[in-house]
Design a protein around this nucleic acid. Structure first.
Lengths: 226, 226
DNA sequence: GCCTTTAATATGTATATACATAAAGCCGAG
DNA sequence: CTCGGCTTTATGTATATACATATTAAAGGC
């Protein structure tokens, strides 16, 4: 007697071999349940998993149809730098370069969906692996959206936020650029060297939280598992 | 009477306010079900959703505990370049630069977990947006793992694969590098310009499928929603 | 013919119940 | 004291049933 995972796999395979073409309706849950000899709830679980994976689209009364362009959604885990470094067997440390209140620059404000000049805390951090520069972090934090701040010389901003502020939405951007002077100096690399930059904006229940710009040392690879 | 989504939200909130600290056990399903006045299955659905989101970790017998480091999971949509370009209101096209059988180079073989020299199809493609170079794609395809191939001059490899081969696992790597000669020539940029490279390996039920190396035009940003 | 109301239907959720499975912890044999 | 097996327990899955909800399709009124 098949379990829901086997049914999910079976249906996925039947879609793959084009038994049901993209855009076509697949049989209803009742019908599939009878075919597979299981309860409807079991089929429901299986098909729902495929829907969450983006392979089919479901609508009440209208039934379930194979997605036209099965844009594959995969879950990826966003690395926490300390973990990433330690995972490579290296020793993590960080240096707080500066932390001071100020107004948001226009471009950062735009990304956070806040007015330019909005009160913020600007934080600059250098992340180290085995004592050598690993990444340079420029961050703007919206104090209105987070609990009272701890002493960021002792715990890294990133980690404190991850542990203390729930994120409800956000965006991650990867880009390559010639190292900017500030980052190049902090990372002790030649200005203009190609660096991988990740920009992250996050928002929580009380509004936009933070914008981070992370410049990695040349040669760094950001690794995501599907 | 609360539904599973309300219970999920309630538990998430109780975690946020530290009623249960990171690493701590939360009450069992039976207990929560009694507290909320619902059936265990309803609580199960709610907590399972939180587990899938990475906020809690569940283990049989050991119970459910709040994740120490709630490693955030983002949904990554394996980008179909055509869609991405068209989504920006630009016209997509591609040119198949070359496609020929050959043995896998050692470094690619290693990434695919196949022996060096394994039979493969090497494909080079240039993606265009509004007639201008957008990205350069170097791909190795494992013919043993996919159905018979179509004519790749008519449909892009990427799109055909996404639509026809189920992916069960894989890896995505982002890095920045000075443009290699081949990519620089194809993209019509200065050699040495900083380019964003994404490398992707995917494996399906019949083994490793493909390794793709995509060099984007300078200034390109890869965007992921959380 | 067109708009509104109503019925039919596929998926969504909730429930009680039962058994499966994994793993922690206990306990006895050696 | 250590190892292996047994028990216990929390989560995982399956089932039958019932009702909710969204949406389409049909029926009816104008």
């Amino acid at each position: 007697m098949p379990g829901w995972e086997e049914i999910r796999d079976s249906v996925r395979e039947r879609i793959r071999v084009r038994e049901w073409a993209p855009g076509a309706l697949i049989p209803g849950e009742e019908r599939l349940a009878a075919d597979y000899g299981v309860a409807r709830a079991t089929v429901n679980r299986a098909i729902r998993a495929l829907a969450e994976a983006g392979l089919v689209e479901r609508r009440k009364r209208a039934g379930t149809r194979v997605a036209e362009l099965p844009t594959r959604r995969a879950r990826l885990e966003i690395p926490v730098i300390r973990r990433e470094v330690e995972g490579q067997g290296r020793i993590y440390a960080f240096r707080l370069l500066s932390a001071r209140p100020g107004g948001l620059p226009a471009e950062v404000a735009a990304r956070l969906d806040l007015p330019a000049g909005h009160a913020a805390l600007a934080i600059e951090t250098l992340h180290l692996a085995d004592g050598r520069p690993h990444a340079h972090e420029a961050r703007w934090l919206n104090p209105a959206a987070v609990p009272p701040l701890p002493d960021f010389a002792r715990i890294s901003v990133n980690e404190w936020l991850v542990a203390n502020v729930p994120v409800v939405s956000g965006e991650v951007v990867f880009l390559a650029e010639a190292a900017l002077p500030a980052a190049a100096a902090a990372l002790a690399i030649a200005p203009g060297a190609p660096v991988l930059v990740t920009e992250r904006t996050t928002a929580g229940p009380d509004g936009p939280i933070t914008f981070v710009r992370l410049s990695h040392v040349p040669g760094h690879r950001v690794n995501l598992r599907l």
